[in-house]
């Protein structure tokens, strides 16, 4: 998919001067960047650089960790999500997350996908099965599982489980999808399938992916952010980051020398 021209881009999530401390340790240092709507943005960097931590700030999943302190501003459509009146349930409905491990509930395929809508108060069975079908179709899993919706999700392959996790997320109709190394536990074919799916989903959602895999970032993203030791080193169009990095640290990392 062609990269859109900057003048078409709409800011979706704006991060401004974000600092994050685990006790004494500062894990994010004055990070500022804007994620644009209907773009796939990759966050890359070595282990421990803070990329997952940054991602988890965007739906406040870090809140559950004791001893954490966040300073700065993260805005979704212009509204500060760390504001006093932010409803976490609403935030996480708008900003959904898929984790590294394809963690499904030990429930049926149907109940996995219906979990989110039920949590948000939907009881009507007809509506629920409609949502389940649409969500599974959106991730390309409907044809494979339509005959066995009541089978335990644990019977799916790892790759299909991760697709199910995506379907489960799509079912709550989020605006932003956060992917935390979604393919690192998967085989190459499943990985490609996830990447193709990101391209498909980007039409409707804003996608932010943390990845270790630089080919994946190069292939599947429009924009790339490179982080090192809690700092955002460089952020720009993916092609530029990989072919013409401005910072020598970025260059060393994308050429495998860091």
């Amino acid at each position: 998919m062609a990269i859109r021209q900057p003048n078409e881009l709409h800011p979706k999530v704006e991060v401004k001067d974000l600092d994050l401390y685990y006790g004494q340790h500062q894990a994010l240092k004055k990070v500022s960047l804007t994620f644009y709507a209907n773009q796939v943005t990759a966050i890359i960097g070595p282990s421990g650089c803070g990329k997952s931590t940054l991602l988890r700030c965007l739906n406040r999943m870090n809140d559950t960790i004791p001893g954490i302190r966040v300073e700065g501003r993260v805005a979704l459509d212009g509204t500060d999500i760390y504001g006093r009146r932010q409803d976490l349930t609403r935030l996480r409905k708008s900003v959904g997350m898929v984790f590294q491990r394809p963690n499904v509930f030990p429930l049926s395929i149907l109940d996995n996908v219906a979990y989110g809508p039920k949590v948000h108060g939907l009881k009507d069975r007809a509506r629920l099965s409609e949502i389940v079908e649409r969500s599974l179709a959106a991730v390309g899993l409907w044809g494979e599982v339509r005959e066995r919706l009541n089978v335990s999700a644990l019977e799916l392959s790892l790759g299909n489980r991760q697709l199910l996790c995506l379907a489960r997320l799509v079912a709550v109709e989020p605006e932003v999808i956060l992917l935390d190394e979604p393919a690192s536990a998967l085989d190459p074919i499943s990985t490609l399938r996830i990447e193709e799916l990101m391209r498909e989903l980007q039409k409707e959602y804003t996608i932010i992916i943390v990845t270790h895999n630089m080919q994946q970032a190069a292939r599947a993203s429009d924009r790339t952010a490179f982080m090192l030791s809690g700092e955002l080193v460089e952020y720009g169009e993916t092609r530029q980051i990989f072919t013409n990095p401005r910072d020598t640290r970025t260059e060393r990392y994308v050429t495998g020398k860091l």
Binding site: G96, F105, G116, R168, V172
Partner: peptide, 27 residues
């Protein structure tokens, strides 16, 4: 019960009580 179940439930917008009753207790 694996923490991942709680994490998924929270990430989908579940409250703590929903997480306990729907994700944790069945397991």
């Amino acid at each position: 019960v694996p923490d991942s179940y709680r994490e998924i439930s929270f990430a989908l917008g579940g409250t703590r009580w929903q997480t306990v009753t729907r994700a944790v207790l069945p397991s």
